[in-house]
Amino acid sequence: MTRNLPGLIRELIGTRSFEQLAEDCNGQPSKHRLYSMVREPLKQFPSVESIQGLAQGLHVHPNTVIMACAESLGLADCEDKGPALVLPESARELTASQKSIVVSTVIEFAKANIRARQDDA
């Protein structure tokens, strides 16, 4: 499975609306631009501010957003083995909100590990 920008946004927006995601992105991109990123073919790379905002709002590294944009533009073949976070089979019973909480928790653990490595350096 390949993860392009619309797929990345759909996968990680969780239960949030485009408006809520735009707020989490500090307004870059706007809710209208987010909607068009999902619904219309990408014609060029988003601005640096939009890439940084998407990374913040989706809780991923900016490289993840850049590679998803490159895939959307036909500039890269980003083979992906599945969702960003593979949950156990029993997780199918979780609600979308519960899954979103699990993803957020894993992201916080990852951030804590990054901070710990930076502190050790």
Rank of each mutant, 00 (worst) to 15 (best):
V60H: 01
T105P: 02
A116G: 11
A110H: 13
M37D: 01
S50L: 03
Q98M: 07
Q28L: 11
Q20C: 02
R33I: 13
Y35M: 07
C78T: 05
K43M: 04
A70F: 01
F18L: 04
C78H: 07
K99L: 03
E108L: 08
K111N: 15
C69Q: 00
R10E: 14
V106K: 07
A110T: 14
P46I: 12
A112R: 10
A70C: 05
G14E: 02
C25P: 03
A70N: 01
A96K: 14
S90L: 12
E49Y: 12
K81T: 13
A76H: 08
D77A: 11
D120Y: 11
V48M: 11
Q56M: 08
V86W: 06
S50K: 04
F18T: 05
H32R: 12
I114M: 06
E49T: 10
F45P: 02
K81P: 04
S104C: 12
K111W: 09
L12Q: 06
E49G: 08
G74E: 00
E11Y: 01
E49S: 12
D119L: 10
E23W: 06
K99C: 04
D119A: 14
L21P: 02
S104R: 15
R39C: 10
G7V: 05
H61T: 09
S90H: 14
A96I: 02
I51R: 10
D77L: 09
L58G: 08
R92D: 15
P83V: 06
Q52L: 13
S50T: 09
A116L: 09
C78K: 03
I114Y: 08
A96S: 12
L21R: 03
M1L: 11
Q20M: 05
S100N: 10
T2W: 04
S100V: 01
V65Y: 05
L85M: 11
A91C: 04
K81C: 13
E40G: 07
K31S: 14
Q52I: 09
Q20S: 07
I66R: 08
A68D: 10
P46W: 09
A112P: 04
P88S: 05
I13S: 04
E40C: 12
P46K: 09
S30H: 08
E11I: 01
I13D: 07
E71I: 00
S100D: 10
D119G: 06
A110Y: 05
E93S: 12
P83A: 10
I101C: 07
A68G: 10
L12C: 03
E108P: 02
K31A: 15
V48N: 06
N113S: 05
M67W: 15
S47M: 14
R10Y: 05
I114L: 07
R3Q: 08
G82F: 04
L94E: 05
T64K: 05
S104N: 15
Q98H: 10
L8T: 03
V86F: 06
Q98D: 11
V86H: 13
S36G: 06
L42Y: 01
C25H: 05
P62Q: 04
C25A: 09
L42S: 01
F18Q: 10
S50I: 05
A84R: 12
E23R: 15
I13R: 15
E79Y: 13
R39Y: 07
E89N: 11
D24T: 10
I13L: 09
S90A: 15
G74V: 00
N26Y: 06
I114K: 14
V60L: 00
I51C: 04
